[in-house]
Amino acid sequence: MELNPITILIASIFTSNMILANFLGMCSFIAVSKEIKTSLGLGQAVTFVLTGTSVINYLIYTYLLEPYGLEYLRFIVFIITIAAFVQLVEMIIERYVPTLYYSLGIFLPLITVNCAILGVSLFLIIRDYSLLQSLTFGIGSGIGWTLAIVALAGIRQKIKNAPVPKGLQGAGITLIITGLMALAFIGLSGVASIQ
């Protein structure tokens, strides 16, 4: 099935949003979404790493693992690629763009264990994407993730002084808000579809 890369881009931002439709990257989504500024920083870092790793993992899988029948090693290979990529990016940014390093720095190590990164790599293998499709899928998923976490951080800042029941404070109310956001995003499901 040939999907237009642009369709994939739009769909992965809005209708197949990593968090709101696929539940990926929830851990940091709940933990870091207290302020808009930090959420935006984490979102940028995730988008950047997603774009890089989806292309690298696609190339490794297609040209190294598949020809030699080593598909079953993909989990280990992908996780090593992601860890190595994050480490490399951290070193390069620290060396050449120190200002960016100070704003993204603390988030980079967190990203290795963000399930959205590994999830995107696994999805693009399962869905049989081409190189260009993988690239737009990576970018779109990153933007979608950023959109969701920034929106959530905005809402959480607003409800800071609201009288939330005691047991529901923290994670509970955050999940309910996320549920409402997911409900709103379902309204966009006619725009583009990739499932």
Binding site: L168, L175, G179, I186
Partner: peptide, 19 residues
């Protein structure tokens, strides 16, 4: 069955558990 249902269920469960 859709994603929002999952978010609401887990949210409510955490509420019950915390209480």
């Amino acid at each position: 069955i859709m994603p929002p249902g999952a978010f609401f269920m887990l949210g409510i469960l955490i509420w019950v558990a915390n209480t």
